[in-house]
């Protein structure tokens, strides 16, 4: 696990990521806007991003995993309620959800929950 292995890992991850981007440009060059193929790719892009966000909140990999499931889901639902109550203001939903999440984490760290 030296510097060389880290460099190899970096090159592998960079190349594996860029392949998708490059293929995306090549496909975009060949696809007309407004056609069925373009619409399908747009739907897949929205769905894949939403799938990733839902996965990170419900089944997190890193530090977020330390927070209990009910805290993550509860704070997120609270943020969504604020978001829709305040005419879809992204700022309101985000800060509301974040505040609820941090408050729950703080209460747990103090042993009050």
């Amino acid at each position: 696990m030296g510097e060389t292995a880290a460099i190899a890992a970096l090159i592998a991850a960079s190349a594996a990521t860029y392949i998708w981007r490059g293929a995306g440009v090549a496909l975009a060059s060949r696809i007309g806007v407004g056609g069925a193929a373009f619409e399908w790719f747009s739907c897949v892009a929205y769905a894949m991003l939403a799938a990733l966000i839902a996965r990170i909140i419900l089944l997190p990999a890193g530090a977020l995993n330390e927070a209990p499931f009910v805290d993550r889901v509860g704070a997120t639902v609270f943020g969504l309620l604020l978001f829709f109550a305040f005419r879809r203001r992204i700022f309101v939903g985000t800060i509301g959800g974040l505040a609820a999440f941090v408050a729950l984490a703080h209460l747990r760290s103090q042993g009050w929950l």
């Binding site: 619409e39 747009s42 739907c43 897949v44 892009a45 929205y46 769905a47 894949m48 991003l49 939403a50 799938a51 966000i53 839902a54 990170i56 909140i57 997190p60 890193g62 530090a63 977020l64 330390e66 927070a67 993550r72 704070a75 997120t76 943020g79 969504l80 978001f83 829709f84 879809r88 992204i90 939903g93 985000t94 959800g97 974040l98 999440f101 941090v102 984490a105």
Partner: peptide, 30 residues
Amino acid sequence: LGLVYLSPVYFLMVFAGVRERGGAFSVVLG
């Protein structure tokens, strides 16, 4: 915990706000 939660909750709001029909279906199903 707050720092790592900020990004998913922000983008959840961004995508919950998608109004156009095909995009909104995609977000819910994805």
